[in-house]
């Protein structure tokens, strides 16, 4: 089988496995996986820019937030249907990432990090400033009745899981298609050596802008799905922490791998989830939280597995992994 064939097979098998899990997982882990798939979409959007194009943004919370608020406000204040609100969220993400991209892509390296971080901070403060509509940090609760797709309630665990899986699958296959496309190869070329790519006659700015908008749209889709599936929209979800989390998930799973983001998100979720219980019993009174877990994980990862889990697997065994 060709490498491309293997890659497509692997992705379809992953989707099938996630579908099979729908029928066997106990209630708690079923709910967790639905949430993880939505967050993994966020991570995949981030990975497109960070992993493939090599642009380290510290402000992706704003794209997640554009989707979250675009969908959430439309549903809450305008009473839009789920599909209309979801589209509004993605549109908001596309507009914002286009504007931010045009400005921020004039910079590179550390300056790019800081510019994206500043824009995200302004976005976060704006969600507080316009609290007449957003109710700031307390946020908005989308009523169950408004979260229906036809006759299906998105608040129902089964519907929610399948909706999250549908979005996840779509974005996974889209990512795979993009990284195998001409655009994907140009992005990797830019990551490896931008001046040379320019000399070869490529319009690197256009390629980077396309990647930013695609990344912004995917992250916004995750944000919109989060609002509509879990019914809550609040400014905490666009704070600086949500710009660092996707970086962490991608690094853990493996930057520039298509499936890495899911693995990173899943592992990180359970690490944090367990830090409350077993770790707390092991070290009572230490108040171990996600802080310690995330911190130790990051340092160990970068020291011993700088390529992340799938990156290491690819480097040692499966060279065809996309």
């Amino acid at each position: 089988m060709t490498d491309a064939g293997k890659a497509w097979m692997l992705h379809v098998a992953l989707i099938a496995a996630l579908f099979a899990l729908h029928f066997v997982l106990p209630a708690y882990h079923h709910g967790v996986l639905a949430r993880v798939m939505v967050l993994a979409v966020f991570a995949m959007g981030y990975n497109l820019l960070f992993g493939y194009a090599g642009l380290l943004s510290l402000g992706h919370a704003m794209f997640f937030g554009a989707g979250l608020y675009g969908a959430g406000l439309a549903a809450y204040h305008l009473g839009w249907s789920v599909s209309a609100a979801f589209s509004a969220g993605i549109l908001a993400g596309i507009s914002l990432s286009l504007a931010v991209g045009v400005l921020a892509l004039r910079t590179t390296g550390v300056a790019f990090m800081i510019v994206t971080m500043m824009f995200a901070q302004a976005f976060y403060l704006a969600t507080l400033h316009f609290n007449a509509w957003t109710r700031g940090d307390e946020g908005l609760v989308l009523q169950t009745a408004s979260r229906t797709l036809g006759s299906l309630s998105l608040a129902d665990p089964a519907t929610r899981y399948l909706a999250a899986l549908a979005l996840f699958s779509l974005v996974l296959l889209l990512t795979l298609a993009v990284v195998r496309s001409r655009l994907g190869r140009v992005l990797v070329a830019i990551r490896e050596n931008e001046p040379r790519t320019i000399m070869l006659g490529y319009d690197t700015f256009a390629a980077k802008l396309a990647a930013t908008v695609l990344s912004g749209a995917i992250c916004a889709a995750a944000g919109a799905a989060y609002a509509l599936l879990f019914g809550y929209v609040g400014s905490t979800l666009v704070s600086v922490q949500y710009s660092i989390l996707p970086l962490l998930w991608v690094l853990m799973g493996g930057a520039a791998t298509t499936i890495g983001p899911l693995i990173g998100t899943l592992l990180m979720y359970y690490l944090v989830d367990l830090s409350g219980g077993p770790l707390d019993r092991l070290l009572p009174g230490w108040h171990l939280t996600y802080l310690g877990v995330v911190g130790v994980a990051l340092v160990l990862l970068i020291l011993f597995f700088p390529k992340g889990i799938l990156g290491t697997v690819r480097g040692r065994w499966l060279r065809w992994l996309p």
């Binding site: 967790v32 609040g234 905490t236 409350g276 707390d280 939280t289």
Partner: peptide, 21 residues
């Protein structure tokens, strides 16, 4: 007891954990 880190997203996860786990 479950710690929610005074965070709304984690809060929702904790409620789910209480109910189903």
């Amino acid at each position: 007891v479950e710690d929610d880190g005074t965070d709304p997203a984690r809060g929702a996860e904790v409620v789910a954990k209480f109910a189903s786990q």
